[in-house]
Simulated scan of single mutants.
Amino acid sequence: MDYSQYKAIDFVKDESFQEWCMYPEGKQAQFWTSWTRENPHQQAEIRKAKQLIAALGESHADVSDSKIDQLWDAIRAGTRETPVASLPKSRKSILVRWSRIAAMWIGVVTALSLGIYWISNQATTVTFATAYGEVKSIALPDGSRVVINGNSSLSYREKDFNADTRIVNLVGEAFFSVSHTPDHKRFVVQTGEDMDVEVLGTKFTMTSRPMKKQVVLEEGRVKVSDSIYLNPGELVAWDADASGWREEQVQDPGRYGSFKENKLIFRKTPLQEVARVLEDTYGYRITFVNPALAGKHFTGSCAADDIPLLLRSIEKAFGIAVEENDRHIAIGKTH
């Protein structure tokens, strides 16, 4: 990592630097002690970063750059002084000097307190995101758990979990295990695309992709888009051709969220849908050499991180060639 051009805010966001500030004698000590000695031009930025981390405490990881800038401005305002001429070393001048030092530190403490108070009262948004092929499991403030599939993100405002309705925003795909609260708080998953899901306590898999809008319920009861109620084992998906929602029963609702167990499971699934999963979740580009293959139904499973095995399974199932080159997969390629 090249830290030579880092600003204070960059250091504040760096996990190894954070650890060094919190544990000066820890495992990061040798690296940062040596690095600061070899890069004296960065001393001012490092000093500023340390002050910010001390002021922010444990909240530094979730604070935006703009809020850090505002806190630093508060620190600077509280510590700004007007130069004074040297005074004789009399008892009176010593008292005056100590009075000024005390006033300076009172200003520092006041500025830090005001800055931290301001930050803590903002509507902090927490965001979790995954790369292509990455799966991430997270715990929400209410104890609910969410497993986010590849190329997806989940965000929420901290203050919403202290309100009457818990609200999260999903882009992509995720499995939800929602905790019921003693005061029966609603839990709403928003997508910004006219597909919101309201629940109390339940387990379901939700997909919000450009070419796929779907909810599959495992346990409990949910309401989709203010009008459709699902029971366990039911699926609702947006049918673009009919411009409406399509509902159906599914035998194994858990397989739709199989990514949480590092599995890919397909049951009589059109290859077009398999291709969509590979594109949306893993970042591949899919081409059907023979367009008729897109409608063929495939049944099979593999580890979610073993795409080559999936491609070989498709080859054997249909007696065709499937080739992958530089993130492009050609299905039905002829030699």
Rank of each mutant, 00 (worst) to 15 (best):
Y3H: 08
I9M: 12
D10G: 08
D14W: 02
F17G: 08
M22C: 07
M22L: 10
Y23E: 14
K27G: 11
Q28E: 15
A29T: 12
Q30V: 09
F31A: 07
W32F: 00
W35R: 05
T36Q: 15
R37C: 06
Q43S: 14
R47N: 14
K48E: 12
A49V: 13
L52T: 05
S59M: 10
S59I: 13
D62H: 01
S66T: 14
S66D: 15
S66H: 06
I68M: 14
L71P: 15
L71G: 08
A74S: 15
A74N: 14
G78I: 03
G78L: 02
T82M: 08
T82K: 11
A85M: 05
P88L: 01
K89E: 12
K89F: 02
S93C: 10
I94F: 03
I94Y: 02
W98H: 09
M104G: 15
W105N: 12
T110P: 13
L112F: 04
L114W: 00
L114V: 05
Y117D: 14
Y117Q: 11
W118K: 10
I119N: 13
N121G: 15
Q122D: 07
A123R: 06
A123M: 07
V126T: 14
T130G: 07
T130M: 06
E134F: 00
I138F: 01
A139I: 13
G143C: 11
N149R: 02
N151G: 10
I167A: 05
V168F: 02
N169F: 03
G172F: 01
A174T: 11
F175H: 12
F175M: 11
S177T: 12
H180E: 13
K185M: 08
F187V: 06
V189F: 00
Q190P: 15
T191Q: 11
G192C: 09
E193I: 10
E198H: 05
G201M: 01
F204S: 05
T205F: 01
R209H: 10
P210G: 01
P210N: 01
K212E: 15
Q214C: 12
V216R: 02
L217N: 05
E219Q: 14
G220K: 04
G220L: 01
G220E: 06
V222Y: 02
G233N: 07
V236L: 04
A240G: 10
A242R: 13
S243T: 05
S243Q: 12
E247N: 05
E247L: 09
E247H: 01
V250N: 09
D252Q: 04
Y256H: 02
G257T: 07
K263G: 03
Q272G: 09
Q272N: 13
V274T: 06
L278K: 05
V289I: 10
N290T: 06
P291R: 00
H297E: 12
T299L: 03
S301L: 04
A303I: 05
A304R: 10
D306A: 04
P308S: 08
R312V: 06
S313E: 12
I314H: 03
I314C: 07
A317R: 03
G319S: 03
H328A: 12
A330M: 07
A330I: 06
G332W: 00
T334N: 13
T334G: 12
